[in-house]
Design a protein around this nucleic acid. Structure first.
Length: 384
DNA sequence: AGGTTAAGCGCG
DNA sequence: AAAGCGCGCTTAACCT
């Protein structure tokens, strides 16, 4: 992958300026100079000197300064707000804008990740040295880093990602009528879920209701409980439990699918992807309830994540076969779990886009259609 | 000096 | 008692 190193270095300098400002502000509020990155010093100031409440502990029993904790404290105190911005910018600078330029191969002028085929429990690839599967995208600051991933002269970057592939797989595996119908009709799935859970027509779904439904949908994929959903949505547990109950009442097939996944893991020791690949589940019979419940969540999630991994691998094989057979001016340069990134000769963009979309969409025949979003740009951010 | 662990956080 | 799945990387803190 080609990088605009100058752009990254310029961004690094901009981050450094802002980080220095934030550090000064933090020192003023703390009444002393300290290393913002030092957990020990930070704990002493926040929970000792300033007397802020300890809202959570780390697994080792230390007062936690995790983002979620600082978010809560930020409502009442200024220092946590400073720390949050400092944390996020320090992460972007140290991990990306400082490091990536150093990882450019002098022979090719590019960064070359290593993909690992046999690391993850679910069949996904992993990426390292550098990891190109966790390049920032969620914040504006982060997207500036993504903008440094560029196409060579005469080429464009094309990013093709599966839309809601795990939820579609859940629809397929569960056979739930409501979910199948929603995807079959091409509905906005989070809006459809919101309409069901909140009992209003789809057109009356508010952005807040849709946001909650999205959290419910994602939470289900991970086996989340009412406790976790309550924390995520900032509602009480009773309310969160009502959402979940209503969801399962409207989509009973999903409830049954999850029960089946637990049973199958317990009886056979494994669950399967749509294509029959087995995912062995440790601890499913553990006497320790926490470990067992963790195993149950894994048993629910693994078929979905694993099937998605199978599907994109099938797509990669098919796309590669097409590129080779037709000698297309395209290079498949990255995979990010549900997304493939290509360098495409500028003049071939339209035809390649259509063909890659068709191949990816046809990589599996499920009970719901697969949908692929494709974007094109001069950099990776634009291609989204 | 160099390795490991804990905490935290970037992504899907 | 825990409470949301799957990864890899960085820094601090601790260890040999």
């Amino acid at each position: 992958m080609l990088l605009d190193v100058q752009r990254l270095e310029k961004q690094s300098r901009a981050f450094a300026v802002r980080l220095k400002e934030l550090e000064e502000q933090a020192w003023t509020l703390a009444g002393e100079e300290f290393n913002l990155g030092s957990p020990k010093q930070l704990q002493a100031i926040l929970f000792g000197k300033l007397g802020l409440p300890v809202l959570a502990k780390t697994p080792k029993g230390q007062p936690s300064t995790a983002e979620s904790v600082l978010q809560e404290l930020a409502a009442d105190y200024e220092l946590p707000r400073i720390l949050l911005e400092h944390r996020s910018l320090a992460k972007l600078k140290s991990t990306y804008t400082d490091k990536l330029p150093k990882q450019v191969n002098p022979r090719t002028g590019r960064v070359h990740t290593s993909y690992h085929q046999a690391v993850t429990a679910t069949g996904r690839l992993s990426s390292s040295d550098p990891n190109l599967q966790n390049i920032p995208v969620r914040t504006e600051e982060g997207r500036r880093i993504r903008q440094a991933f560029i196409a060579p002269p005469g080429h464009r970057l094309m990013a093709a990602d599966y839309s809601q592939i795990e939820l579609r797989i859940m629809a397929h595996l569960s056979g739930d009528e409501g979910l199948l119908a929603a995807f079959g009709a091409g509905e906005d799935i989070h809006r459809a879920t919101a309409a069901e859970v909140f009992g209003v027509p789809p057109v009356e779904v508010t952005s807040d209701m849709r946001r909650s439904a999205k959290a419910i949908n994602f939470g289900l994929i991970y086996g989340m409980t009412a406790f976790g959903l309550a924390r995520q949505l900032d509602v009480d547990r009773t309310t969160a439990q009502q959402y979940i109950d209503r969801y399962f009442a409207r989509y009973p097939g999903v409830k049954a699918f999850m029960a089946r996944a637990r049973e199958q893991a317990r009886e056979q020791g494994y669950v399967e992807t749509v294509f029959g690949r087995r995912l062995y589940i440790q601890d499913i019979k553990s006497a320790n309830a926490a470990r067992r419940q963790y195993a149950e969540r894994t048993a629910i999630n693994a078929p979905m994540q694993g099937t998605a991994a199978d599907i994109i691998k099938r797509a990669m094989i098919e796309v590669d076969a097409w590129i080779q057979a037709e000698k297309q001016p395209v290079t498949m340069i990255m995979q990010v779990h549900d997304e493939l990134v290509f360098e495409v000769a500028a003049e071939a963009v339209d035809s390649v886009r259509a063909r890659i979309g068709a191949i990816m969409t046809a990589a599996a025949e499920l009970r719901v259609p697969l949908e692929v979003d494709i974007g094109v740009g001069d950099n990776w951010d634009e291609a989204h």
